[in-house]
Nucleic acid binder design. Structure first.
Length: 111
DNA sequence: TGCTTGACAGAAG
DNA sequence: CCTTCTGCCAAGC
């Protein structure tokens, strides 16, 4: 069969972007959440990468607490050294391996 | 039109 | 723990 990947339509992409930004704006100070959780909550579980694209390319995302979004391992974004400093300034603890201590700071967005 | 590139995730070695 | 590979999917070239 022609397996059609369920691509997003333009309207879906707009809504996805809005949902992502909305969720990110709700991350409490001193907490972090993951790309995967955000994507799933927005209704597109397989679009974790799209969350990163959205935060990186959407003008205005800089004023949201997007530094509180890390990958599932607690690793901060490549090429964004400041992110770690910002998190530490909020009291987020890092493990010796340079990853966020997810056990202490992971925040799951609520519906 | 087709291949490559990511602010990813998860499994494997 | 770290690297590499596969699956994922929109964007870039």
């Amino acid at each position: 069969m022609h397996d059609y990947p369920d691509r997003m339509t333009a309207p879906q992409m707009r809504q996805f972007r809005d949902d992502v930004l909305n969720i990110v704006s709700q991350i409490p100070r001193g907490c972090v959440t993951t790309y995967g959780h955000i994507a799933a909550l927005a209704g597109w579980p397989s679009h974790a990468r799209m969350v990163g694209r959205t935060l990186h390319y959407t003008p205005g995302a800089e004023r949201l607490p997007c530094h509180r979004v890390v990958n599932a391992a607690g690793r901060t974004a490549p090429g964004w050294a400041a992110q770690r400093q910002m998190l530490q300034a909020e009291g987020v603890a890092f493990k010796p391996n340079g990853h966020v201590d997810m056990a202490r700071h992971l925040w799951i967005p609520d519906l």
